[in-house]
Amino acid sequence: MAASSSSAAAPCRFLSPLATAASRALLLSSRTPPPTRRRLLLATTATTIAAAMATSSQSGASASSSFKVVDSHLHVWASPQQAKEGYPYFPGQEATLRGDADFLLECMDEAGVDGALIVQPINHMFDHSLVTSVLKKYPSKFIGCCLANPADDGSGIKQLEYLIVQEKYRAVRFNPNLWPSGQKMTNEVGRSLFAKAGELGAPVGILVMKGISLYIQEIEELCRDYPKTTVILDHMAFCKPPTNDEEEKAFSSFLNLSRFPQVYVKYSGLFRISRETYPYEDTAQLLSRVISNYGANRIMWGSDFPYVVPECGYKGAKEAVSHVASKISVSPSDLEWILGKTVSQLFQGAWVAP
């Protein structure tokens, strides 16, 4: 996904819907205008789910020490100052949200998240220098997912190999919107990129912002022809709770991809797939069906930082998962897989102290 950064963005602690009443009152009195209707709604929602979250955190206290909580999907990009000093934004993709690594680390620390997979943002397009600098600075905290360049000249294949072999990126993103006009992910370049990723052991994350229906045949073809290439479907393939036959058909086609054992799912960016406000309870029906088809050990949570920050806060994004899971009686073991064990198993050797 793409978008932007503002140095004036509110602190992570303030944005979490589950911040304590005392800290919220202090922040509101010291630096904010009177609460908006949206803030009051979030505060009410926090009160509603606080008891459930407290019970969940107590019962899982001993288990939490046995696995790392890992965010499978987020982005970082340059601060305005960094953009001036050597990490420029791609023209037309200037940041409007704060998304620098310092802010991310602050949010992760508050939420109790141990590590993350950073997906190269559209803000820097195919210039991976900013993300690479973050990966090198925090090698035990982050691993990277680069962005595939599907240029007609095939130059993206060499770049992919360089980023994975030399810069140690662990995955690659396919964004079909970046393919040349009229071209599909299954064209010659796309197939070469997909095959090379499999050869190098790098899962391919696929972004289908316009809906799974437009790309299902391409995804099936790639999975069928290159079974050694692992696939990850970002944001539940943008499937919202179905409300009509067409949406149910699209969701069913997404579920049917589970027949390919190399396909994984990101239960990520819940604000993108919900028709409701925080804590996105209507995604429970989606999660239940995905668990039934894929199994929890092929599902991984992702926040979609920093886009999620103005929606419900980073900490709220993590806590929503446990809340939704409680609505469908997801077992503690399955919840652990979703919150970190799946992604840790997929990217073995990551998120360990050097």
Results as ranks from 00 to 15, higher is better:
Ile122Ser: 13
Pro139Tyr: 04
Glu319Ser: 06
Leu135Gly: 07
Val131Trp: 01
Leu270Tyr: 06
Trp351Cys: 01
Lys341Trp: 04
His128Ile: 02
Lys341Ala: 07
Gly211Met: 03
Ser133Asn: 05
Leu40Lys: 00
Glu276Thr: 13
His235Thr: 04
Lys158Tyr: 02
Glu110Cys: 00
Val76His: 07
Thr45Glu: 14
Arg259Cys: 13
Ala195Asn: 11
Lys240Gln: 15
His75Ile: 02
Lys168Glu: 02
Trp77Met: 12
Phe271Ser: 07
Tyr294Ile: 03
Ala197Arg: 07
Ser292Thr: 14
Ser79Phe: 02
Ala296Arg: 08
Ser23Cys: 06
Ala237Phe: 08
His124Pro: 01
Ser66Cys: 02
Val70Thr: 05
Thr96Val: 09
Tyr87Lys: 07
Phe67Arg: 08
Ser329Arg: 13
Ser258Asp: 06
Ser322Trp: 10
Ala8Glu: 15
Gly295Leu: 05
Arg298His: 10
Asn244Ser: 08
Gly316Ala: 06
Cys107Phe: 05
Met108Gln: 10
Ile216Lys: 14
Leu104Ala: 02
Arg259Ile: 14
Tyr314Cys: 03
Ala195Glu: 14
Ala148Phe: 03
Met125Tyr: 14
Phe271Lys: 03
Cys146Gly: 04
Leu214Gly: 13
Leu346Ile: 10
Gly115Ala: 02
Tyr294Glu: 03
Glu246Trp: 14
Ala202Glu: 02
Thr243Asn: 12
Glu336Met: 05
Ala9Thr: 14
Thr243Ala: 15
Asp334Leu: 01
Asp282Thr: 05
Ala95Glu: 06
Ala101Ile: 09
Leu163Ala: 06
Pro354Trp: 03
Tyr267Pro: 01
Gly156Glu: 06
Trp337Pro: 08
Ser274Tyr: 00
Gln159Glu: 10
Leu255Gly: 11
Arg39Leu: 15
Thr55Glu: 15
Ala78Asp: 11
Leu286Lys: 01
Ala51Gly: 14
Leu270Val: 12
